[in-house]
Structure formats: structure tokens, C-alpha cells
Simulated assay, not measured.
Amino acid sequence: MTKHDLEGIPETLLIALWARAAATQAENPIIHDEKAVEMVSQINYDFSRFEASSRYTKLGVAVRTRLLDDGLSTFLEAHPDAVVINFGAGLDTRHARLQCDTVDWYEIDVPESIELRRRFFTENDRYHFIAQSIFDLSWMDKVETAGRPVVFLAEGLFMYFTENELKQFFKELAERFPDAEMFFEMLGSAFVGKEKHHETLKQIDSQVKFKWGLKNTRQMESWHQGIQFVTEWNYFDYYKNQWGLFGMFARLPFARPRFACRIVQLHFASRQVANAA
């Protein structure tokens, strides 16, 4: 693969991949992702561009990876028959890392990302790749849930789309997948429009924008009667000594709502509950 094979938002998957690999190789690592280390060594891309200024990227990606791993693992322990649908999968290694071979799992991403993914991962009867945009809702007819619990994942994705795009998308999810659960990454609202100042995003060849992030996640409940906020985990509350002064500032009461990059858990209510709301 050359750097020209991924353009726009898909190129950002290489930042996350590199950050997981770098975090794995750090002293006292927060995560262990040896597959990411392997992939970085095999992809023809100048990953060295990220090394000079990457402290918060490595830490943020490591923390979000750990939080999502923990959230999903807890869900799957309670629902071992669940169907996992991973939006914007990129080169995410969670399926292998959590040893989810017995789980029906769908990786959804645009064709160029899935093409790269196929170099390192193989589909089987329980592990499926869907090569299309998540906004092409025909993917909904390709996943087989058969009344089982459904859990959605979205990491490093929604911040690149507008609120109007996401509102319609979440409405469709709530309508088509009542009783489903979702874990996703929410960008702090202070970072919307500040992509030129992001330490690693400004190093890639493509120009992408941070378009969405909320101070109050509960605002999403107004998008559809079936959307229910469950909980969220603020990155800056974890590994506090590694965030330094910036983390101390981001945890201050006046700054916290705007700077809170976090993992959010939502529930999509059953139709009966949603209609009664």
C-alpha cells in the first residue's frame, strides 16, 4: 500500500493504528496490541511523521481503546450471543484482541479501508466485512441479528460528520435496532473546528475537519424518543498523571464540559418504551 491509497477520512485510520502500536511499545503500556505493531511494520506509509509530536494522541488512543475494550467485554459477558457491528472499522484489531471468534461480528467501512483490512484479516462464517459507507443504509439488510442482542461500536469516526448527518443516522438506528446498545467516541466540543491544531491530524496528507462534538451528551436524547443516554467515561479521568497540566485544566469544572473527550454508552429503547416516552 502507498500513502495515496487512502485519502480523506480513511487516512485517519493510520493515525489510530500507529498510536496503538506506539502505545503498545511504551514503558508500562496501557494496552497491548501486537497486531497493530505487526501491521505498522508492513504498511508502506511514513509513520515517522507522527513521532515528533504525539504525546496526547498516543495517550488518548490508548485510553479510548482500553475503555471501549472494557465496555464491550462487560456487555459480551452479559450477552454472549450478541451481534457486534463496528462502524468505521479501519484497521481496528478489537475482534482479535478480545478473542471474539465465537461472536457474530461485522466490520463496516468504505471500500478502500476494507480492501486494506483484507490484507491482514480474513472473513469467516462469524466474522464479516461490509465495504460501504455507514450512511448507505443498505448495510442494515446485510447484518443477520435474528432477535439477538446488538451492540454498535464507533471509534474515531463521528467527529468527522455534521450533526445533521448524524441525527438522521441515529434516528435510523433507533428505528431499525430497538433494544440495541452503542459505545462510541465523543469529541470534546472545544476541539470542533480545531483540526489544524491537532498534533497528528495536521501531519497527514489529507485535509479533514472536526465537525461534531457535544458539551452535553444528553442532547442526543432529543434526536429520537428511542435514544437513551446510559453513561460516559471521560478520558481525562484515567491515567491522570500522564495527562499532565493539560489534563488538570481539562478536569476543572468550567473546562470539563467543553474538553471532555469520552466514550459514551447509549441504549436504543424498545418500540413500546420509545412510543410511551
Rank of each mutant, 00 (worst) to 15 (best):
L68F: 07
W18Y: 12
S138A: 09
V110F: 03
E27Y: 08
I134N: 01
S54V: 02
L59I: 05
H95L: 03
K142R: 14
A131Y: 04
H32T: 14
C100A: 14
R117H: 04
L17M: 05
E107T: 02
T57I: 12
H32Y: 11
N86I: 03
R64S: 09
A21C: 09
L67N: 09
Y56F: 15
A16G: 12
V37A: 08
K142G: 04
F135C: 06
T122S: 14
A26I: 01
S54A: 08
L59T: 06
R126A: 04
W139S: 02
S138R: 15
R55T: 13
H95C: 09
E34S: 14
L13T: 09
L59H: 12
R118P: 00
E123A: 13
N28R: 15
F50Q: 08
L17V: 04
T93K: 06
W105H: 09
V63T: 13
I114N: 02
S138N: 14
L17T: 07
L59R: 15
A78D: 15
A62F: 05
D33I: 05
T57P: 08
L59Q: 13
A89W: 00
D46Y: 00
Y106D: 04
G90F: 07
E107D: 15
L72S: 01
T102P: 01
V143K: 06
L17P: 06
A96P: 04
D81M: 04
L116R: 10
R126Q: 12
S113V: 15
L76Q: 07
L137K: 07
R64P: 07
A96W: 12
D104R: 14
I130L: 14
P29W: 15
V83S: 10
D109Q: 00
R66K: 15
I31Y: 02
N44S: 15
R117W: 03
R97N: 03
S133G: 06
T102I: 06
I134D: 01
D136T: 14
A19K: 11
A131D: 10
K58V: 14
F135P: 00
V84F: 09
E107L: 00
F50N: 08
Y56K: 13
T74S: 13
G88Q: 09
V110C: 01
L116M: 13
K142T: 10
V83G: 06
E112Q: 14
P29A: 11
R49L: 11
A16R: 00
A22C: 07
I114T: 07
Y45C: 07
K35V: 14
F135Q: 05
N86H: 13
D141S: 11
R64E: 03
S138Y: 00
Q132V: 00
S113N: 01
S73W: 04
I130G: 03
E144V: 13
L98T: 05
S48E: 09
R118N: 06
Y127F: 15
T74I: 07
A19E: 06
D70N: 13
T24N: 09
S113F: 02
A82V: 10
N28Y: 08
D136Y: 09
R126F: 00
V110W: 02
I114D: 04
A89K: 00
H95M: 09
Y106F: 09
L116H: 11
Y56D: 12
R117C: 01
A16L: 10
R117K: 14
F47T: 06
M39S: 05
A21D: 01
E77C: 12
H128W: 03
Q25F: 00
E51F: 10
V103D: 06
L14M: 06
